[in-house]
Amino acid sequence: MAKKIKIAEEFLEGKLSVDEIEAGNLENSMDEEFIDTYRKVISKNSEEEIPNFNLFEKTAFQQKKERSNSFKRTFSYAATVVALIGFFSLFFYFSTIRKQHTQPVKIAETQKEVIQVLLLFSEELNKTLKNFDEATTAFQPFADYKNYSIEFNNPIKNFKINEL
């Protein structure tokens, strides 16, 4: 006969998951009923339909905006080039236009990469600061503080992330 499970020790302590508990294997009927209800809550939640929304709604809007910006930029750029044609000689036009065609593309690419690297640094910095803040407030058991360390004599010790 299988050993009866003490729900308080095994499930409530987080050692077993609800799937690992077999029906009729618990110490008393209250525990049996609790596990049964818990299972039903889980299955009810998983059966609930999620709203039919477009995951990329904001992304699509952004792309549309980008296309529009890109068109405006291209248009204004083209207008500048046309003005230059009228103003300078044919020889000067050729040399200028070649320069302007290649440079902005390279600059835009580098700029985009720089911004992404800065963003990554910024996000990781903020995330770590927030996690540290949370770890020292309510989230972590006291014994887990050692997973986070912060220099005592450093410029960010009084850095209030929430005030930014």
Binding site: N69, N126, P155
Partner: peptide, 20 residues
């Protein structure tokens, strides 16, 4: 360091204008 930290917010506000 504060400016680096603020960059995330700057991006969220200005990023769209920059095609990001």
């Amino acid at each position: 360091l504060k400016s680096i930290s603020e960059f995330e917010q700057v991006m969220n506000i200005a990023g769209s204008a920059f095609d990001m």
